[in-house]
């Protein structure tokens, strides 16, 4: 359960204050499938980063699963990110020198999960995403679709309740993009909250709930 009340985020750029988000009130239930659309600079990514605890609001309160996470310090926020939030990025953000398996394992390593458990989970994820044969390949030996599947596997390795995807199909061709969206949508069936930022109205239109942002505000919501 994500609850934002009166959340604003402003940046100081060249001595001037720029508001990226203005007084956002938003509530997203567990297992929701939400897409955020809007032109560049409308504040979509800032909103996503706030929800992902990579950024802090300038004002307002953000509650995650009932707890006020804005009040947490960096270390506590890192723990929440580790346990509850998964990220999928447009440019995949795989560590180039690590194998596919090790990239998937990375969040588990950082969280200090025991080796046996880690091995089990990584094998399972590689299998789920059809990557078993690619386990030892480095990212530069993988296709774009495979890279994004590694990224999704990594994002889900800690069983997060919220999955944040920022233009996950932006660097993929249409067919591969659709495949990736399918994988993400399957996760919503397992009560994972999926929040998807996209330019593409076709992809955004598939979400049950569609938010449109302009100038740091949510100007319309469509529920289907």
């Amino acid at each position: 359960m994500i609850q934002l009340s009166d959340v604003s985020r402003s940046f100081v750029v060249g001595g001037q204050t720029v508001s990226a988000l203005r007084n956002i009130d938003l509530s997203i239930a567990d297992g929701d499938y939400v897409s955020i659309m809007g032109p560049s600079g409308s504040g979509k990514s800032t909103l996503l980063n706030l929800i992902g605890l990579l950024d802090r609001p300038s004002s307002g309160i953000y509650k995650l699963d009932g707890g006020n996470v804005t009040a947490l310090n960096d270390e506590q926020q890192a723990r929440v990110r580790s346990e509850k939030i998964g990220f999928v990025f447009q440019s995949f953000h795989l560590v180039p020198r690590l194998s596919a398996a090790m990239n998937i394992e990375l969040p588990l390593i950082l969280a200090g999960i025991p080796v046996d458990e880690r091995r089990r989970r990584v094998a399972q994820l590689l299998d789920n995403y059809g990557l078993t044969e690619r386990a030892d390949h480095r990212p530069d030996q993988l296709s774009g679709g495979q890279r994004q599947r590694v990224a999704i596997a990594r994002a889900t390795s800690m069983h997060p309740s919220v999955l944040l995807a920022d233009e996950p199909t932006g660097n993929l061709d249409q067919a591969t993009g659709r495949e990736v969206i399918n994988l993400l949508e399957q996760l919503t069936e397992q009560q994972v909250t999926l929040i998807l930022v996209t330019h593409d109205p076709v992809i955004g239109g598939r979400a049950k709930r569609q938010l449109h942002m302009v100038d740091g505000q949510i100007i319309s919501q469509i529920e289907s």
Binding site: L54, A78, S82, F89, A111, R154
Partner: peptide
């Protein structure tokens, strides 16, 4: 730098 950002997103603490 991007990798460091990624690690933080994956739940790495500053100390890690």
């Amino acid at each position: 730098t991007a990798e460091i950002g990624l690690l933080r997103a994956l739940g790495a603490r500053e100390n890690q």
